[in-house]
């Protein structure tokens, strides 16, 4: 269990490290160029892992609906916006505001998809997040 907790915490660290690296690269280039290299380097790395581990191409690849492939292009904008933000408002503010947006839009998506949800807990959580976001905006 300790190993599981350490792994889950480290996932968050990796997210932060990646944003820090891409932010540094965009300082010398631009957020879009940082996002470009992030995807190219990640692709090469995952290709190597896939060639070693195998099973990169699943059999049902032609059955995948077209819109599911949009995850990659969306990620390009996500990485570029994170790189733009972190050099302007810092790592803590970027992490907090993106997390806030992620959680609130996640609740909205679940409502849209009709996924089961404890509405009072979700509504309370959204209110707390909005209060925290308001606090970052006050001068």
């Amino acid at each position: 269990m300790t190993l599981a907790i350490a792994m889950a915490l480290f996932v968050g660290v990796l997210v932060g490290v990646s944003r820090q690296f891409n932010g540094r690269l965009s300082l010398s280039t631009s957020p879009m160029i940082a996002s470009f290299w992030n995807h190219i380097v990640g692709f090469v790395f995952l290709t190597l892992v896939g060639l070693i581990a195998g099973g990169l191409l699943p059999p049902g690849i032609s059955d995948i609906p077209w819109y599911v492939w949009l995850g990659g292009p969306i990620g390009v904008i996500f990485v570029a916006s994170g790189s733009w933000l972190i050099i302007r408002i810092g790592a803590v503010n970027t992490a907090l505001l993106v997390i806030g947006g992620q959680i609130i839009s996640g609740v909205a998506l679940d409502l849209f998809l009709g996924s089961p949800m404890a509405l009072s807990a979700s509504a309370g959580g959204v209110l707390l997040i909005l209060a925290g976001v308001a606090l970052t905006q006050r001068r």
Binding site: I77, S81, G82, L97, V98, G101, S105
Partner: peptide
């Protein structure tokens, strides 16, 4: 910044 970060979080979802 807030708008962009929230949109970014929405894109992540």
């Amino acid at each position: 910044h807030l708008l962009l970060a929230f949109l970014s979080g929405g894109l992540l979802t």
